[in-house]
Design a protein around this nucleic acid. Structure first.
Length: 429
RNA sequence: GCCGGGAUGGCAGAGUGGAUAACGCGCGGGCCUUGAGAGCCCGUGGACCUUCAGGUCCGCAUGGGUUCGAAUCCCAUUCCCGGCGCCA
């Protein structure tokens, strides 16, 4: 959510920034907000005047009654004033609701370094790492590899849950858990606090962390309960401190979330329909930071470096892209993606997403900070999040990049200690 | 799930229908001091109008209701504590 005061004082600045996202709706909403806000302030002043009048009247009634005198004419006046107040109060409330509603729909302001572009093709490569593997045999995709090794069962998942789910088996399970353990250990070594959050959230906190469109597009709703399955542990971690004031000395607060993630992916029909690349459920270790505004851009780079470090240790070739204005999410001010080379697709594909959400989530959630105990709140925090490792896509990358001619998979050295020292995944293991 | 008790500012905690939410701690500023502390004084939730001073409203878990007037009375909801029940 943007600061209404900023919009009031500098609407052109806000508008120019929003225009970079390429959606004309934003500009229309902004105009509406400015107009309704002006009306709201006008009516609020009127309302306050009327309330003041009633207050005076009420005080007189009190005095008269105490003195045992007749107050009926004043009481009548107060009653009449009351109905006038009720009327204007409703107008104020509806104006308030309208601005609040539009304010919740406006996306975050973009950082100056975000490249302008319409879609994915406008993303700008920042750097690349590793060597794209050359195979002197006919390579298989992760689905064939996984089926042949009996570590993935997609067909039976289809029977039980429908498309875009999978059963992991045998070494597939070990690999999944090894990735989680590896990422958690590496990230906690860097001072991130492990957190296992609830997998369900109520709507109100959920509205604080995500775009409203996500409720229809990506979130699974529990029937007849005010609960949604989390799409990432970012969400319950961000909402954890809703309506709280953190102390400056505990910042930056760095968390490592561990959870399964659930996504409907409505609107993704036809994209990556087979296999484990785009699924309704996967496991993820997520980095999350609450910090002071002045340190968030530096920490954004730290999150990216942490994520790159993990991918490098796994030995997967990748590139980093600066996601452009047309492709960046609603809540992010700037976002890097790490895209790992997927041999069977002959393309780099996203496995990590690293965002600085500035004060956008914190303002929606009411998360502020104070300099010390007893001091008044200083302002809203900044929040940042980044994948450490999402197992589904990383498993795809490992299977395809480290496949051998005989269909076996060489396990990355750093994972072996977490999976019974298996060096190679074959039909025996 | 049932019965009972509770929710007030950063914290502790009064107020049980009639203007300003008491006192304290903490925090900020000032006086004093070589400096710090102590002591003393002022301030310390949010919004709006005006901006020089200032003015007004809202705020006692959340949402309704009763009343000329609600932190205070009534109803619903949420969460916390205790007891009972159920249970991986």
């Amino acid at each position: 959510m943007l600061d209404i005061k900023l919009i009031r004082e500098n609407p052109e600045y806000v508008k120019n920034n929003l225009m970079k996202r390429g959606d004309p709706e934003n500009s229309k909403m902004l105009d509406t907000i400015v107009a309704v806000d002006r009306e709201w302030r006008h009516k609020l002043t009127k309302l306050n005047d009327l309330r003041h009048e009633r207050k005076m009247l009420t005080a007189e009634v009190g005095k008269l009654k105490k003195a045992g005198k007749d107050a009926s004419s004043k009481v009548e006046k107060a009653k009449a004033l009351d109905s006038e107040i009720t009327g204007i109060q409703a107008e104020v409330a509806s104006a308030e609701e309208k601005t609040g509603d539009y304010l919740m729909r406006l996306p975050n302001l973009l950082h100056d370094t975000v490249p302008v572009g319409n879609d994915e093709s406008g993303n700008v490569q920042v750097r690349s790492w590793g060597i794209i593997p050359k195979f002197d045999f006919a390579i298989k995709n992760h689905i064939d590899l996984g089926l042949n090794l009996d570590i993935i069962d997609i067909e039976r998942a289809g029977k039980v849950t429908g498309s875009r789910f999978f059963y992991l088996k045998r070494a597939g399970v070990l690999l999944d858990m090894a990735l989680m353990s590896f990422a958690l250990e590496e990230i906690t070594k860097k001072g991130y606090l492990p957190v296992e959050p609830p997998y369900l959230m109520r709507r109100e906190p959920y509205e604080g962390v995500t775009a409203l469109g996500d409720f229809e597009e990506v979130l699974y709703k529990i029937e007849s309960e005010d609960l949604y399955l989390i799409a990432t542990s970012e969400h319950p971690m961000a909402a954890m401190f809703m309506n709280e004031v953190l102390k400056e000395e505990e910042l930056p607060l760095k968390l490592a979330g561990i959870s399964a993630c659930f996504r409907k992916e409505a609107g993704a029909h036809g994209k990556d329909t087979r296999g484990m690349f785009r699924t309704h459920q996967f496991n993820k270790i997520e980095q999350f930071i609450f910090c002071k505004p002045e340190e968030s851009w530096q920490l954004h780079e730290e999150l990216l470096r942490n994520a790159e470090d993990l991918v490098q240790k796994l030995g997967l070739p990748y590139r980093v892209v600066n996601v452009c204005t047309g492709d960046i999410g609603t809540v992010a001010a700037k976002k890097y993606d790490i895209e790992v080379w997927m041999p069977a697709q002959n393309a780099y594909r996203e496995v990590v997403s690293c965002s600085n959400c500035t004060d956008y989530q914190a303002r929606r959630l009411g998360i502020r900070y104070r300099e010390k105990e007893g001091a008044p709140p200083k302002g809203f925090l900044h929040t940042l999040n980044s994948t450490a490792i999402a197992t589904g896509r990383t498993i795809v990358a490992i299977l395809e990049n480290f496949q051998q001619e005989d269909g076996t998979i060489v396990v990355p050295k750093v994972l072996r200690k977490y999976m019974q020292d298996i060096e190679k995944i074959n039909l025996e293991r």
